[in-house]
């Protein structure tokens, strides 16, 4: 039985087995390769996507659990290729290096800043507990997020 969901505003139907990780449905079936399968154990956060507006790790979310739900991936956060305020600040802060963690970072932080418009530095760091980065040493990412918030 196909699994139906909305992905970045579009109704989609997946033929995947119900226990297939959502990350594989998005990448292999829908060719949305923004989210990255890096650890496949919910610790690195590179596959983070919004499910009904909440950031979840797509590697540990079975496809069956997103039946009827609305999914937004990093590709869906920048309509028409226009960067959102967080992405713009990350460019300005020269924060990006290899870039593999950023699809997840951007999803997590975009959601976090919407929920917590004026965060402290420690709150931003705590929000990133599930988003590892091996290149940057985090500080510019944190600084860009604080910059978006104007704090």
């Amino acid at each position: 039985m196909p699994i139906e969901m909305t992905v970045n505003g579009e109704a989609r139907r997946s033929a995947a087995d119900p226990m297939t990780p959502l990350i594989d449905v998005l990448r292999d079936e829908f060719h949305l390769t923004g989210a990255k399968p890096v650890c496949r154990e919910g610790f690195c956060g590179a596959c983070t996507v919004l499910v009904d507006g909440e950031p979840l790790v797509a590697c540990l979310t079975p496809a069956a659990l997103v039946e009827g739900r609305e999914i937004r991936t990093v590709e869906g956060l920048s309509a028409g290729g226009r960067l959102n305020p967080l992405q713009t600040r990350l460019v300005e802060h020269d924060a990006v290096q290899c870039g593999m963690c950023f699809p997840g970072m951007v999803v997590t932080l975009t959601h976090f800043l919407a929920q917590t418009p004026r965060p402290s530095r420690d709150q931003v760091r705590a929000a990133l507990t599930g988003n590892a980065c091996r290149c940057t040493g985090y500080e510019r990412i944190v600084a860009a997020a604080l910059d978006v918030a104007g704090v």
Binding site: L90, A95, V96, F102
Partner: peptide
């Protein structure tokens, strides 16, 4: 390349 990396 930052823009592309940030938008997936």
């Amino acid at each position: 390349d930052a823009g592309d990396k940030l938008t997936g």
